[in-house]
Amino acid sequence: MEKRDKIIEIRWHGRGGQGAVTSAELLALAAIEEGKFAQAFPSFGPERRGAPVLVFNRVSDKTPIRARVSVINPDIVVILDPGLIYITDVTAGLKEGGVIVINTTKAVVDIKSEFNGSWKLAVVNATSIARDTIGVPIVNTTMLGALVKATDIIELESLAEPLKERFGARAKGNSDACHRAYKETEIAELSGVVKKPTKTFETETFPSWQELLPGSVIPEAGNAKQYRTGDWKSESPIWDHQKCIKCGICYLFCPEGCIGQNKDGYFEANPYYCKGCGICARECWTEAIKMVEEE
């Protein structure tokens, strides 16, 4: 990315607990270390570990940053979780010529059809790199390496100090992850017309003030059932009917209450709600349940 007196805006798409906030913070600290101006802040919401979250960065060479408002028209989007592209419009508002950095097991040729616009696409198998280097599939620092490769928004070396500050003894693994991602990130130019966003981030509709009942009472009991929490998961439980004795322990221990019996008496999780916590698989007596990675 050319160095201009311009504010570069970045939107991170991750899930609660994946460390997107940390990524954005490290990026801002590294940029400030380089003498730039930078900002990092999350969208502050009630969502918990596993839920989709947004985090924002602004970076500029010379211009102090004043905007305290979410990034609507990013120059760059970074996607920590490949599943997010199916549940949220990650490229919403992405500028012409903008950059998409995504964690995926797929190669550029296999994933580029998911994006329709004249953008630069950078792909990296961050989950695998993170497993190798850090030992856990937490990809936030790995994705920083990919971001730097795709955009040269900062120098890779500038991350060294902030990583050390943040991770102490674990800094080396994270730094290795960052460097490996820098090497392994594959980049391609996409073409196409930027389409209007089909989805917005606010998937819920909200009433007008006149529609609210006195005291904002909610008369529809349990209407949160409409809310899909199944988007949060990266793993799904799969039942092996050979081993299942239909005891229902999985049903009993499910924090979502989303496991039910099908007509044959076997249990299954409702994918609309299942967050993929893995309790059912862990507690199953007969080891009939396996957690399988979502794709």
């Binding site: 919401g45 609210l212 904002s216």
Partner: peptide
């Protein structure tokens, strides 16, 4: 009924 649900930014002003 539910009374006293919290108001996130898209609804608190309303």
């Amino acid at each position: 009924v539910t009374m006293g649900a919290f108001g996130p930014p898209p609804i608190y002003t309303e």
